[in-house]
């Protein structure tokens, strides 16, 4: 697979702070993969997202060293047009509405209007995305007057409709109930099926285990582990680094310690059931 984004020796420090929030970040983001970003609060996950999209330092100011590249070109060179390439969704659903549209339908149209896309095409794309994100029934409602979960889906729809190559999604479900969380992940799953490159920060580790191809672990502003999801989430040493591992992984590891001959440490419920069943059968 080809590299779509790359961070080269990136160190970033916010204004008014004493030490950098991100230290020496080196990573290649490959096209079409889903990256789960995990780590303790304050480990630098959100800042990493902001740096990938270029908001740090362009909007947050502060100091950036090193380079963030999109397809081999520094993202600074893309200027305002970077929004056509990298989509960005974040935690707070309430601040993710444009504040100038009367209806959800127009809200989702807003980005494409800014891009100067012809109206017929806007309408077609917006209707498609509203179907995908299941917000058609909200189309004529005031975007200020829908629930947080609905707003977050509208925010996702408004970004997905722009068809960016890379989607940076920062804790999209932290303020949502289980139902809202599920509906947001339905959308992420659909994006994954469309082979979009996704960088996803999420605290709910089971969801990372299920959806991510690779996991990046942050601690104190550094990447302390990075690799395929199963390898990372089955690494019990990460528990000491403040990473929340899936409960089934911890269970599998314990069972293995106790002598159950598991083929591997499973990280999703489904896999866990399979390997444990298999091991039990083998044991007779």
């Amino acid at each position: 697979m080809s590299t779509i984004m790359e961070c080269k020796n990136v160190t970033y420090q916010y204004p008014l702070t004493d030490k950098p929030t991100l230290k020496n970040i080196n990573i290649k983001i490959e096209k079409g993969k889903v990256y789960g970003v995990v780590g303790e609060n304050g480990a630098g996950k959100t800042t990493f997202c902001a740096v990938l999209r270029g908001f740090a330092p362009s909007f947050y100011q502060g100091e950036l060293q090193g380079e963030v590249e999109l397809e081999g070109k520094n993202i600074v060179e893309y200027g305002g047009d970077i929004s056509t390439r990298i989509g960005y969704v974040f935690q707070n659903p309430f601040t993710q509405i444009s504040g100038v549209k009367d209806t959800v339908y127009e809200e989702v149209c807003y980005g494409l209007e800014n891009f100067g896309v012809p109206v017929d095409e806007i309408d077609r794309r917006v209707r498609e995305v509203m179907k995908l994100t299941n917000i058609e029934s909200l189309a004529m409602q005031n975007p200020f007057e829908i629930s947080g979960g609905q707003m977050q889906r509208v925010a996702l729809a408004s970004v997905i409709v722009l068809e960016p190559d890379v989607l940076v999604i920062d804790e999209p479900t932290s303020q949502l109930d289980p139902e809202g969380t599920e509906s947001v992940f339905e959308v992420i799953k659909a994006m994954k099926e469309k082979h979009k490159t996704i960088v996803l920060v999420e605290h709910k580790i089971d969801l990372i285990a299920e959806y991510a191809d690779e996991v990046i672990v942050f601690k104190d502003g550094e990447i302390v582990a990075h690799g395929p999801t199963e390898d990372i989430l089955s690494d019990m040493s990460l528990l000491k680094k403040g990473v929340n591992l899936p409960q089934v992984a911890v269970l599998c590891s314990k069972l293995k310690e106790k002598g159950l001959p598991l083929e591997k440490i499973a990280v999703t419920d489904k896999e866990a059931v399979r390997v444990i069943e298999k091991a039990l059968k083998e044991r007779g």
Binding site: D81, S83, N92, S98, E106, G111, E113, F115, G116, V119
Partner: peptide, 26 residues
């Protein structure tokens, strides 16, 4: 404090894209 995030939202929706904007409302 919401305005800070609103800036990020607007930029993510292409507020600063160099293009002749269109409008679904005529």
């Amino acid at each position: 404090t919401g305005a800070e995030e609103r800036v990020v939202t607007l930029e993510a929706r292409g507020f600063s894209v160099n293009a002749q904007k269109t409008s679904v409302f005529k």
